[in-house]
Every structure is written in structure tokens, then in C-alpha cells.
């Protein structure tokens, strides 16, 4: 069921130092340590950046092909009918197109950004009232770009580690983690399963925190 989360041991190889993020997917393939999933991770972010920068409809089409079948599956698993799920997916895809200018590849991979948009829209629809969302941090594009290249590589490495951590969990635990993020568990069930915290999430937190501190420092220095 989560076949795509399983990756081979070769992918433990860290990304080459100084690798340019835009080419990470290609280089991974060239180096032979490739995994379909790794190159996809980078590609998805590249597609989203192409949509943001060039209103690239072909890139949007690839995002559509990759994400709509999975988003629909996720929404159905969290309790929506097929038709209702498609309505939400439609809104999510159009939001991606219309709000691409807000996407920051140094802060989130495409899948994380899209995951959040899908949750926001799903909750708005189910509860018929706006989901409370945190205030956006306003980060100037210039201070953003200075950190993005490194941050993108780090985000990609974290994603690889996260997939690995998931793949090495015993089947029953892996299913619980997956069900938690898919939206099949109640808050009480998620609470009970808290012991399953993945180590890599903790390291991801440190990374995100460092990145935030950089950005906030830049803001305060201005």
C-alpha cells in the first residue's frame, strides 16, 4: 500500500556537497544512486517553481497528474465522498495556480505546501467556516533567496531520511503514522500514537527553526 515509501539502501547516500538544487533530481540519476522518489521530489518542486516564475501550464499539468490522484485518495480516506473529494481537489489545484507567487521553495517542498493547502480547503468545506490558520510570516524575496539553495538541498535530504525512517518502521507502526497524516485518525488516536515520533522529524524541526531564525534576523536587521 505504501510501496512508494520504500526506497533502496543506496539512497542513503547524501546528496553531493554543493549540489545545485534545481538539478538535484537529474544529478541523482546521473550518479547512479537514483530513486524514482527522490528525483520526483525535486521535480515536483521544480514544476511548482516553473508555475510561479513562468505561469508554465505544462509544468502545472505535471503537478496535476502527480497530485490529483493522490489528493483525491487522501481526502476519501479522511472521510469524504469521491464527488466531494474531487470538488476539494479542484479548488486545491486552482489555489496552487493562483497562489504560486506565495510559494517559497526554501521553506517547504512542493508536497508539504500542497498538503497544507489541501487541509485548509478540506476543513473550510467540511466545517463551512474558515479554518483558523497561523499569520503568515512576511519575508522579503531578497533575504529569502540568499538561503534557498542550501535550504532546498537540506529539505530534500530530510525528505529522503523521513521516507527511510518510515520504510524501516515495523509495518503496524508505519501504518499508524501513515494513517495519522492521511487524516484517518482522531486527535485522541494521534495522541495515543505520539510515542511514534520519528527522529527525522526532530532534525527537520531544527533545520526549519534555523532557517526561520535567519529570516527573522534579516528582517530585524533591515
Amino acid at each position: 500500500m505504501i510501496e512508494a515509501l520504500t526506497i533502496d539502501s543506496e539512497t542513503k547516500t547524501p546528496l553531493p556537497h554543493g549540489l545545485r538544487p534545481g538539478y538535484a533530481g537529474k544529478s541523482m540519476n546521473d550518479s547512479g544512486a537514483s530513486s524514482e522518489q527522490i528525483s520526483q521530489g525535486c521535480e515536483q518542486t521544480d514544476w511548482l517553481v516553473a508555475v510561479r516564475e513562468h505561469r508554465d501550464k505544462a509544468a502545472f499539468g505535471r503537478l496535476y497528474d502527480h497530485f490529483t490522484p493522490r489528493l483525491k485518495g487522501m481526502l476519501i480516506r479522511s472521510g469524504m465522498s469521491g464527488a466531494a473529494a474531487e470538488d476539494v481537489v479542484q479548488d486545491v489545484m486552482l489555489t496552487i495556480w493562483r497562489k504560486a507567487h506565495l510559494y517559497d521553495e526554501g521553506r517547504a517542498r512542493a508536497s508539504a505546501w500542497i498538503y497544507r493547502i489541501a487541509r485548509n480547503r478540506q476543513i473550510d468545506v467540511i466545517r463551512r467556516r474558515p479554518r483558523p490558520v497561523p499569520d503568515e510570516m512576511i519575508v522579503e524575496a531578497e533575504s529569502r533567496e540568499a538561503h534557498d539553495a542550501d535550504a532546498m538541498v537540506s529539505l530534500e535530504q530530510e525528505a529522503v531520511q523521513l521516507r527511510e525512517a518510515l520504510a524501516t518502521l515495523p509495518q503496524s507502526q508505519r501504518e499508524i503514522v501513515e494513517r495519522a497524516y492521511v487524516g484517518e485518525l482522531t486527535q485522541a488516536e494521534i495522541r495515543e500514537a505520539t510515542g511514534l515520533a520519528l527522529g527525522t522529524i526532530k532534525s527537520r524541526i531544527r533545520l526549519a527553526l534555523e532557517k526561520l531564525r535567519h529570516e527573522l534576523k534579516d528582517l530585524r536587521d533591515e
Binding site: 483525491k72 497544507r116 525528505a159 501513515e178 520519528l198 522529524i201 526549519a208
Partner: peptide, 26 residues
């Protein structure tokens, strides 16, 4: 800031799970 980073980490994990889901027909 700390909990913002922790939320972004959770969403990163959600994204990884989303990418790994089986595709259904649309």
C-alpha cells in the same frame, strides 16, 4: 517561531506521506 517550525516539519512529513499514496482514478 519554534512551534511554527514544528508545524512546518509536520507538514513536510504529511507531504512525504501524500507523495507515497496510491493513485486513485480521477
Amino acid at each position: 517561531d519554534e512551534c511554527r517550525a514544528r508545524l512546518e516539519a509536520e507538514e513536510a512529513a504529511g507531504g512525504v506521506v501524500l507523495e507515497g499514496l496510491e493513485a486513485v482514478d480521477t
